[in-house]
């Protein structure tokens, strides 16, 4: 598929999402949450590009969400913009600190260490009742927007479009990052880390940047989820949430920025369908969807629309012969 066609499709997707609250108003809330989780899944997808699977990125989702809760309850910050900036800043700093240690490890060690740290934070959030509200979590009041107060339903409508605009803006930045030398170096860690080091590039630094960016994205997903739901819970940091993010990223595809969002929105639709027709079998349907993608779409849903480079290059070579 040519880039122009791809951009047209993506623009069409964004327009369709923009029209969704008008066409399917009852879907607006779940789609806001799906878009929010999409940011976290994009963070996980960045690390997947380097061949690193984090089963602990819900940690940063929870950090972003709790940061928003603490800021609005403890510090009295109610502005949505400030909440987003503050939460993202906190998860970015935490990502850099945790990442400096994590990215020294590879494969199963990386996956398990992320899992371990996220579960420690989950336990702390659940046990420190006086600070975090324990398993009851914390309520997040409806934020103001540039000093204007809105009721919950008005705010939700605005938040939906804020999330959509952020997808386009942040998506563009991440796209540029992936196309930059640093982004290519990230993929190079996966295909040949030894060679990368012999080219004079520190894989540790390349990965630390990616880890920090991924934490920032997960934190952004966290704050958006928190203000959409209006409540934060320790479960945000639980390992099933981390697993769900990996699943979303793989399902959507890590080949492009749109993949994880596609995965997140697709899963949300599957979810509402499954709940409507087979309430108890939601996880099974989820699993079957993933199996189908792994078997038939190894590049994820995004692979359906993006060109398949490997196949193309082999064909080109055969034509040369």
């Amino acid at each position: 598929m040519r880039p122009a066609t791809l951009y047209l499709l993506l623009a069409g997707g964004v327009l369709a999402m923009a029209a969704l609250p008008i066409l399917l108003p009852w879907k607006q809330f779940v789609m806001t949450v799906a878009m929010a989780k999409g940011f976290a899944a994009l963070g996980v997808a960045l690390l997947l590009r380097a061949g690193m699977i984090s089963i602990g990125h819900a940690l940063f989702l929870a950090l972003g969400a709790y940061a928003a809760a603490f800021m609005s309850r403890g510090a009295g910050i109610t502005d949505l913009g400030l909440l987003i900036l503050g939460s993202v800043a906190i998860s970015t700093v935490c990502g850099a600190l945790v990442g400096a240690y994590m990215v020294r490890y590879r494969a199963i060690f990386f996956a398990m260490l992320n899992l371990a740290v996220s579960m420690v934070v989950f336990s702390l959030l659940a046990k420190l009742y006086r600070v975090t509200g324990g398993t009851d979590g914390m309520r997040v009041p409806v934020p103001t927007i540039f000093g204007m107060e809105y009721d919950k339903s008005q705010f939700d409508a605005i938040l939906y479009y804020v999330a959509l605009v952020l997808i386009v803006a942040v998506g563009f930045l991440v796209h540029r990052y992936l196309k930059s030398p640093l982004g290519h170096a990230l993929a190079a860690v996966h295909s040949n880390e030894v060679r990368l080091e012999y080219l004079g590039v520190s894989a540790w630094r390349v990965l630390l940047v990616a880890y920090t960016v991924s934490a920032a994205l997960a934190g952004l997903g966290g704050v958006l989820t928190a203000v959409a739901v209006g409540h934060v819970l320790p479960e945000y940091a639980y390992w099933t949430e981390s697993g769900h993010l990996v699943l979303t990223a793989v399902l959507g595809g890590i080949g492009g920025v749109a993949g994880p969002f596609l995965g997140s929105i697709f899963l949300e639709f599957v979810h509402s369908f499954a709940v409507g027709y087979a309430d108890d079998a939601w996880n099974m349907i989820n699993g079957i969807a993933l199996l189908l993608v792994i078997f038939f779409l190894p590049q994820g849903l995004y692979g359906l629309i993006a060109r398949r480079r490997a196949a193309k290059s082999v064909m080109e070579r055969d034509e040369d012969k």
């Binding site: 196309k179 030398p181 982004g183």
Partner: peptide
Amino acid sequence: AREGVFQGFTPL
């Protein structure tokens, strides 16, 4: 890599 990979958003 020779020029340094940390160079912002300019494409490779």
